[in-house]
Write a protein that binds this DNA or RNA. Structure first.
Length: 134
DNA sequence: GCCAACGTTGGC
DNA sequence: GCCAACGTTGGC
């Protein structure tokens, strides 16, 4: 089992929308590093859902329900998408501020490399964020 | 293959 | 709305 974090601007696609839809195709990723991560995702992996720009907080845990397949929105290039479904909403969102202030989370990509939209997490880091949110 | 210029993302 | 950071592109 691997652990991940994906970002979305809530004005584009929010956690609430994911809960309403029941599942979604996570497409539109056009970044080489992010693509490698999408390709590594396995069915059942847990994925933290982060709202960028508005909120700037981790709001829920989603699950990979379909492993990487060709991105239907890509007209050129070998881009991939996965399918995600909501798993559990965090009782209280974990803000970027909290994460930045937490010694155990200093090394996650979210802090070190703000622009990456799909990133891996260590199990300990994942568990820690979930704990902060419960 | 290097590096400058440019575009995009995302925090503030 | 601004700007820093970083990825990508293109000229040499």
């Amino acid at each position: 089992m691997n652990y991940w974090l994906v970002k979305s601007e809530p004005t584009t696609y929010s956690w609430d929308q994911l809960e309403k839809d029941g599942k979604t195709t996570w497409d539109g990723v056009r970044n080489f590093a992010a693509r490698i991560h999408l390709n590594t995702m396995k069915k059942g992996d847990h994925v933290l859902f982060y709202h960028s720009n508005e909120g700037k907080e981790v709001v829920g845990i989603s699950k990979v329900t379909k492993e990487a397949f060709p991105d239907p929105t890509a007209t050129e290039g070998q881009w991939v998408a996965v399918e995600l479904a909501p798993h559990k909403k965090l009782k209280k969102p974990v803000t970027l501020e909290t994460i930045k202030a937490d010694k155990a989370l200093q090394n996650i990509y979210l802090v070190r490399q703000g622009r990456l939209s799909v990133m891996p997490l260590e199990k300990a880091e994942f568990d820690h964020i979930v704990k902060l949110g419960s």
